Computed example of a mutant assay.
Amino acid sequence: MRILYYSFSCAPCAGSDEGLGWLWPFYMRNDHEVYVVTRKDRKPQIERYLKDQNITNMRFFYCDIPDWMNFYYKTGKGFLAYQKLWQYPAYGMIKKLHKKYQFDLIHHVSTTDFRLIGFVYKLDTHYILGPLGGAQQTPAYLRDYTKNNSREEKMRALINRLTISNPGYQKAINKADYIFLANKETYQYIYPYIKEKERCRLLLDIAIDKSKISPGEDTGRQKTDRKTDSIADQDKVMTFIWSGRMVYRKGLELLLDALDCIDRKLPYKVVLCGEGPEMEHLKELSREKRLEGHISFTGQLTYEKMQKN
């Protein structure tokens, strides 16, 4: 089967959307003829990896909006607008590629935002969407955690409603052979608008490189040995790692409130990896709650460094 992957975010040796956009075609290449359209800033990293690993059964095509209007590359701001604008040149390129290669299937795998699915549904071929997310809303009983961002919450809800009520959007999602949703909230939001319900499925948007998973080892110890070990382990520090962009919607302030309820004598540590507009506020909050001995901030780490944590 000849498959085109529509991957705005795509990079080897990465997590999150980048890993998702990379690993779908990476693993499918062994059984199918794989093509990928992604943005041009990923080209050096992707081409270097393909060369180093001697991978010849993945074909990449790079496109982007004009440099003069690409404010995201210049300032690092306006990522949502950049993602939206990128859909236009991407569709133009995919349309030309489809005319040349006649893809059996086009899979929109990234972005995972349900509001940004592009225009490839207009092409005459099989079509898969997702896994998509983004329709989650803060529950009423947790609204205190969004009080400083109420305007953004309302704008997000408005954009969601405008998106799902758009006839063109409804046509796009109903053209899909399958539409995968990453969480129950997005599933429940979109499901009523899907005419053929069996096409709508839940699928986590988690990308895992199988080579990074260490299989469990069978030590052959008796139950008495494991019981002795569990007693010794009580003196060890249990460490939790969180990774992501520090924005209010991630619920990190709620996490700090939860940690504030735990006995300070318990041996645990929480490591927060990443950056974002909430970082300094969270650091100050952890100091106010006297959690410094249990929580640490690493800042943004590379994928390689994350593997060593």
Rank of each mutant, 00 (worst) to 15 (best):
residue 2 R to T: 10
residue 2 R to L: 01
residue 3 I to F: 01
residue 4 L to H: 02
residue 5 Y to V: 04
residue 8 F to W: 12
residue 8 F to S: 03
residue 9 S to H: 14
residue 10 C to R: 04
residue 13 C to G: 04
residue 14 A to M: 13
residue 16 S to D: 12
residue 17 D to L: 12
residue 19 G to C: 13
residue 22 W to A: 10
residue 24 W to Q: 14
residue 25 P to D: 12
residue 27 Y to G: 15
residue 28 M to K: 14
residue 30 N to S: 12
residue 32 H to S: 08
residue 36 V to K: 07
residue 45 Q to F: 14
residue 50 L to R: 06
residue 54 N to G: 05
residue 55 I to Q: 07
residue 57 N to I: 11
residue 60 F to H: 08
residue 61 F to Q: 04
residue 62 Y to W: 06
residue 66 P to Y: 07
residue 67 D to C: 04
residue 70 N to G: 08
residue 74 K to C: 07
residue 76 G to I: 12
residue 76 G to M: 09
residue 80 L to A: 04
residue 81 A to P: 00
residue 83 Q to Y: 02
residue 85 L to N: 05
residue 86 W to S: 08
residue 87 Q to L: 12
residue 95 K to C: 00
residue 99 K to I: 00
residue 102 Q to C: 08
residue 107 H to Y: 05
residue 116 L to N: 09
residue 116 L to V: 12
residue 118 G to S: 05
residue 118 G to H: 08
residue 119 F to M: 09
residue 123 L to D: 01
residue 124 D to K: 13
residue 124 D to V: 06
residue 137 Q to W: 01
residue 137 Q to V: 12
residue 138 T to I: 08
residue 142 L to K: 05
residue 143 R to Y: 00
residue 144 D to S: 07
residue 146 T to I: 01
residue 146 T to G: 00
residue 147 K to F: 02
residue 149 N to E: 03
residue 149 N to W: 05
residue 150 S to N: 05
residue 152 E to Y: 05
residue 153 E to Q: 09
residue 154 K to I: 09
residue 155 M to E: 12
residue 156 R to S: 14
residue 156 R to Y: 12
residue 156 R to Q: 12
residue 158 L to D: 05
residue 159 I to M: 13
residue 160 N to S: 13
residue 165 S to L: 10
residue 166 N to R: 02
residue 168 G to C: 04
residue 169 Y to T: 01
residue 175 K to N: 06
residue 176 A to V: 02
residue 177 D to H: 04
residue 178 Y to C: 03
residue 180 F to C: 02
residue 188 Q to L: 13
residue 188 Q to N: 15
residue 189 Y to G: 00
residue 191 Y to D: 09
residue 191 Y to Q: 07
residue 192 P to H: 03
residue 193 Y to H: 10
residue 196 E to H: 12
residue 201 R to N: 02
residue 202 L to V: 01
residue 208 I to A: 10
residue 212 K to Y: 10
residue 212 K to S: 07
residue 212 K to W: 06
residue 213 I to P: 03
residue 214 S to Q: 11
residue 216 G to Q: 05
residue 216 G to L: 07
residue 219 T to I: 03
residue 221 R to S: 08
residue 222 Q to L: 11
residue 223 K to M: 11
residue 225 D to N: 08
residue 232 A to H: 11
residue 233 D to R: 14
residue 235 D to A: 15
residue 237 V to T: 15
residue 237 V to F: 02
residue 238 M to F: 10
residue 241 I to H: 10
residue 243 S to H: 13
residue 244 G to V: 11
residue 248 Y to T: 02
residue 248 Y to S: 00
residue 250 K to C: 02
residue 251 G to Y: 06
residue 251 G to T: 07
residue 257 D to I: 05
residue 258 A to Y: 04
residue 258 A to I: 08
residue 260 D to W: 01
residue 260 D to E: 04
residue 262 I to F: 03
residue 265 K to T: 15
residue 267 P to M: 13
residue 270 V to D: 07
residue 271 V to E: 11
residue 272 L to F: 14
residue 274 G to K: 13
residue 275 E to Y: 11
residue 277 P to Y: 04
residue 277 P to S: 11
residue 278 E to P: 04
residue 280 E to D: 15
residue 281 H to G: 10
residue 282 L to N: 03
residue 285 L to E: 13
residue 285 L to V: 11
residue 291 L to T: 03
residue 291 L to F: 06
residue 294 H to S: 10
residue 296 S to T: 15
residue 296 S to N: 03
residue 297 F to H: 07
residue 299 G to A: 13
residue 306 M to E: 11
residue 306 M to P: 01
residue 307 Q to I: 09
residue 308 K to G: 06
residue 308 K to S: 15
residue 308 K to E: 15
